[in-house]
């Protein structure tokens, strides 16, 4: 939802502290769940993630979540899905060149990041989005990648 997503960016400092508190919990739970159930609960987990993050951030389920590095503004809402924005076409009022009624996702992102403790993460270059992860749960992707790395 557009309104909720603007609210989430405005409260980016608060959302960040929520994120920092709950993310490790969620990932721990995911690790436990996947240990016991394997892949059999992937679908419901993905639906829950899509519901929660969809409501708060208009999440597009790219499966490659970078919210904490983009001021709590989901870059996949950018019509050009730019992961290192903004582009040069931002309107004078800070709105999107493609959707004039929408605040530029990346104006919001830099704004949100400026209020966050770890906001400087937005200055790091984001690498290539992995399109093969589209539609999958980034929670599950993170724990499985960690497991593969170890």
């Amino acid at each position: 939802m557009y309104r909720v997503r603007l609210w989430a960016v405005k409260r980016s400092r608060f959302m960040e502290s929520l994120y920092n508190r709950f993310n490790p919990v969620i990932l721990t739970v995911m690790r436990g769940v996947t240990k016991v159930f394997g892949k059999s609960l992937d679908r419901p987990i993905t639906v829950v993630e899509a519901g929660v993050k969809g409501f708060l951030f208009d999440c597009k389920m790219c499966g490659d979540c970078v919210l904490s590095s983009t001021g709590m503004s989901c870059p996949m809402n950018c019509p050009k899905t730019i992961r290192n924005g903004p582009c040069g076409g931002v309107r004078d009022n800070g709105h999107c060149e493609v959707k004039p009624e929408m605040r530029c996702v990346w104006v919001a992102a830099w704004d949100g990041a400026s209020r966050m403790k770890g906001g400087d993460a937005i200055k790091e270059v984001q690498t290539f989005v992995d399109s093969s992860k589209q539609g999958s749960s980034s929670w599950l992707n993170i724990i499985r990648e960690d497991a593969n790395d170890n």
């Binding site: 019509p79 050009k80 730019i82 992961r83 290192n84 582009c87 076409g89 060149e97 493609v98 290539f128």
Partner: peptide, 24 residues
């Protein structure tokens, strides 16, 4: 460049790709 969106051009019905952005 990232590139202008298809909606501003003469083929607004085209599929935009944007697999990469200018930085990647």
């Amino acid at each position: 460049l990232s590139g202008d969106d298809v909606s501003v051009g003469d083929h607004p019905d085209a599929k935009p790709v944007f697999d990469l952005d200018s930085i990647t």
